[in-house]
């Protein structure tokens, strides 16, 4: 593992502890404000030590690109997060969550394109494909949720034959996913098509859902991104991503259920009330 490998792994362990402790503190009104600071410290430690990750084999340019990318994404998010009205918070959560899902999908894409980079075990390939799918769905779905709450997509419109299109796309995704697993990633065209299908699926799934149900949907995509991060963490052998992603995946799933229950709705009702157009079960 080497000296730097040890330090990086130690920093990830510290980050995992701080994340769990911070989230625990966020669960009580008295300690909630401290909780986010604890979790933030964990993120800072993990990010700084990652610059010394022994698995990074790139040259100086790669490090420059890393810093530039963090500066662009970080400052844009900082400014938008500080400026936004308190009432507009849910759509900002959706936006940032979608970005996380997109990042997980990007990691999956790189791993799947450079398939010779790792000796692919069967479980690893499946995790990479499923993580790419969930990340892509979360990315596109969250952006639709953001656009709806922001008022850029006002109607919960349905394209004709929406149900059929969604089901057909789901079937195609299964077929293509299986083809990628069977071919050991050796067909970049399949991988690219699969990625765009996952985006389309996220759009089709979210578009029929009305604005009032959006917080529940955002919470669901939050759990999705967590799962995608955990799966891709397994693929690239990153324990911090596995732990943090899985904790968020489970916590987010339970939170989604509780939020739906708080609105006297079941999750299937939220997801498919707009989906099954002509059953009278649409609660408004």
């Amino acid at each position: 593992m080497g000296f730097w490998g040890f330090l990086v792994n130690a920093s990830y362990f510290v980050a995992a502890v701080l994340f769990i402790y911070g989230l625990k503190q966020m669960g009580s009104p008295r300690t909630a404000r401290n909780g986010i600071k604890v979790a933030g410290a964990g993120m800072l430690v993990a990010t700084l030590f990652t610059f010394f990750h022994p698995a990074i084999h790139g040259n100086a340019w790669h490090y420059i690109l890393m810093i530039v990318a963090i500066a662009i994404g970080g400052s844009a998010a900082w400014v938008s997060g500080k400026r936004v009205q308190m009432t507009a918070m849910p759509q900002m959560v959706a936006l940032y969550n979608g970005m996380g899902g997109g990042a997980a999908a990007a990691i999956a894409l790189i791993e799947m394109y450079s398939h010779e980079a790792f000796s692919a075990g069967f479980g690893l390939i499946i995790m990479a494909v499923v993580g790419a799918l969930i990340g892509g769905v979360s990315f596109a779905g969250s952006l639709i949720a953001w656009a709806k709450l922001e008022g850029k997509l006002t109607k919960s419109f349905r394209i004709p034959g929406q149900q059929f299109a969604t089901l057909a796309l789901a079937a195609l995704i299964v077929i293509f996913g299986w083809a990628i697993v069977a071919s050991d990633f050796s067909a970049p065209v399949l991988v690219t098509l699969f990625f765009f299908m996952s985006l389309a699926f996220g759009v089709l799934l979210t578009i029929p859902i009305g604005g009032a149900d959006m917080p529940v949907v955002i919470s669901m995509y939050n759990a999705f991104t967590g799962l995608a991060v955990a799966f891709e963490g397994y693929v690239i052998d990153n324990p911090a991503m596995i732990i943090a992603g899985m904790v968020v995946g489970a916590a987010g799933s339970l939170l989604t259920y509780l939020m739906a229950k708080g609105m006297n709705r079941s999750l299937t009702n939220v997801l498919f009330a707009g989906f099954g157009v002509d059953d009278g079960a649409q609660a408004e």
Binding site: Y12, A15, F19, G22, L23, M26, G35, I36, A39, G40, M43, A46, T47, T50, H53, I70, V93, Y96, N97, G100, A103, A104, A106, I107, N222, T225, G226, V229, E232, G233, I236, N238, A240, M241, A244, G245, V247, V248, A251, G252, L255
Partner: peptide
């Protein structure tokens, strides 16, 4: 808060 925590995807990216 949990949305922030899965921002750890940054280290993988």
């Amino acid at each position: 808060g949990s949305n922030f925590v899965h921002g750890i995807v940054l280290v993988g990216a």
